[in-house]
Design a binder for these strands. Structure first.
Length: 272
DNA sequence: CACTCTACCTGTGCGC
DNA sequence: TGCGCACAGGTAGAGT
């Protein structure tokens, strides 16, 4: 499931790869499944995006924003993309094999295409005039946030750690995998409430979230069930129930917390 | 406010 | 072999 590190990895490939999406002109748009377009008609989206130039790709949490201008450079808008569970973006030559669940295609100059492939079809594409329309509903980016801001936001909270960290309005970018990995690194139980955390435990939580996400970005994300072929972030607990804890050797257990599969080491992550 | 549940989707893996 | 089913989970929106 693409979370912050995987989405950042996609952004870097699109911006820094050869070819780059920056400066590319969109000749036309194919929408193979109308439901991926959210909040406006496929015709409205096509009208805005066809002929546009891509000037910038930026990420906040798990959201990607593509800054577009029309041919004259007089009219700007942003194309927003959320990959949700199984969405992938490929910038490839138009001759390359088409993934079987391609939902959306931007045809670019020089026979390049940007394809959005998504087996479960949860992912969405839409347009905004300002990314703030989306970001204002979200907390600070989970990788960009500093310790002081993190501790300040934590101080206003009383909730259990797992649902809190999954809440995109607290910090944006963590999903089920990296919440479990962060809590393991912080040696904190997912059901622990913020209220019961000591100061050193709050600092440990910040450090764990930051280190896990930074390491995962450096690894180009994780590779769960072969979904993210490029990533090699070493998962310690997610999906590893029944296997030995890499720190103490105890058996990793799986609970259900906030309707999510939740993996932890019961001896490394005790409750206060 | 905090939580729980459901809908949206489809590929996978299980039991029978 | 094949069928039915539970399961995976990010987000929005409704309900408790």
């Amino acid at each position: 499931m693409p979370e912050l590190p995987e989405v950042e990895s996609v952004r870097r490939i699109l911006v820094d790869g050869t070819p780059s999406l920056l400066g590319a002109v969109v000749w036309n748009v194919d929408i193979l499944r109308a439901s991926v377009v959210d909040g406006l008609s496929t015709e409205q989206l096509r009208r805005q995006v066809e002929g546009a130039t891509v000037h910038e790709v930026f990420r906040h949490g798990k959201y990607l924003f593509f800054r577009l201008s029309n041919a004259r450079g007089t009219n700007f808008c942003w194309m927003a993309v959320h990959l949700r569970m199984t969405g992938r973006l490929f910038l490839v030559s138009e001759e390359s094999a088409i993934a079987p669940h391609t939902r959306f295609v931007l045809h670019l100059e020089n026979r390049q295409v940007l394809r959005f492939d998504d087996p479960r079809a949860f992912g969405r594409v839409w347009l905004v005039s300002d990314p703030a329309e989306v970001i204002s509903r979200l907390g600070p980016d989970a990788l960009a946030i500093g310790k002081d801001m993190f501790l300040q936001r934590l101080s206003g909270q009383r909730r259990q750690l797992k649902p809190l960290l999954l809440d995109q309005s607290f910090v944006a970018g963590l999903g089920n995998i990296y919440v479990d990995e962060s809590l393991f690194r912080a040696r904190l139980h997912p059901l622990q409430s913020v209220t019961g955390l000591r100061g050193d435990e709050r600092e440990r939580l910040f450090a764990a979230v930051h280190e896990v996400l930074q390491q995962a970005v450096d690894c180009k994300g994780a590779n769960i069930d072969g979904v993210f072929e490029a990533g090699n972030f070493p998962v310690a607990v997610y999906g590893r129930n029944g296997t030995p804890c890499p720190v103490c050797g105890s058996s990793i257990v799986k609970l259900r917390v906030a309707q999510r599969g939740t993996h932890l080491c019961p001896s490394c992550q005790p409750m206060n």
